[in-house]
């Protein structure tokens, strides 16, 4: 399956992906039209600046398992299997921002959006351009990226490792449910207290 491969070191911070993303998620589908729309179309990719002002394309990783999905209160976030995308159903979303608290990348926004017919403010995030993909098109950000920071392609093992390395650079990753080294002694301590309490109760009731 083709997917978006992110190589952050290639990003020059030109913001072309941000513009392309907003246009791809507008009603008109072209830049002049998108600029005239109200509410303004929202880019779902965010380019941040690092400590040396270098660019970093920050978009949804469509994690599996996805922490936003587990945190979503009304069950609005789901996985579309065909493109392996994590999507928000805007008719179910209640704008509670539980997903904002769950996303380790901070890529979910809450805004009115021209594509949300109800006019409600809901969670807006990268949808992997599923509408474009279903038409056989590439994602808009990869189409716009000229430096190879964003590429739509097959992920080989080496790239997968790099993607995961980026993901892990500071965050645990959703599957990092490793045994906390301190759990067992803490639990033993706690159990000892409970047992002591039982004994005390036994003494005081007898």
């Amino acid at each position: 399956m083709k997917q978006v491969i992110v190589s952050p070191r290639r990003c020059v911070g030109c913001m072309q992906c941000v513009v392309a993303c907003a246009v791809a998620h507008s009603r008109s589908g072209d830049l002049p039209g998108a600029l005239a729309e109200s509410p303004r179309p929202n880019p779902r990719i965010h380019v941040g600046a690092g400590i040396y002002h270098e660019g970093f394309p920050n978009r949804c990783r469509h994690c599996n398992p996805a922490p936003c999905m587990a945190a979503c209160l009304p069950g609005a976030i789901y996985r579309e299997s065909k493109t392996d995308s994590v999507l928000v159903n805007p008719d179910v979303c209640i704008n509670c921002a539980s997903c904002a608290m769950a996303c380790p990348y901070g890529v979910i926004r809450y805004r009115p959006d021209p594509l949300i017919r109800s006019g409600n403010t809901v969670a807006i995030k990268c949808d992997n351009c599923v509408a474009r993909q279903h038409k056989g098109l590439d994602t808009a950000c990869t189409e716009a990226c000229k430096t190879g920071a964003l590429v739509f392609g097959e992920l080989d093992a080496a790239m997968k490792r790099e993607t995961e390395r980026v993901a892990r650079s500071m965050t645990p990753g959703p599957e990092a449910w490793a045994l906390h080294p301190e759990t067992e002694p803490l639990l033993a301590h706690k159990r000892a207290i409970v047992n002591m309490n039982h004994q005390e109760e036994g003494r005081s009731s007898s």
Binding site: P8, F56, N58, V166, S169, M170
Partner: peptide, 13 residues
């Protein structure tokens, strides 16, 4: 303006 870019950048450099 806390952004994942800052975190990545620190890890990178």
């Amino acid at each position: 303006d806390l952004n994942f870019a800052t975190i990545y950048s620190h890890a990178r450099y």
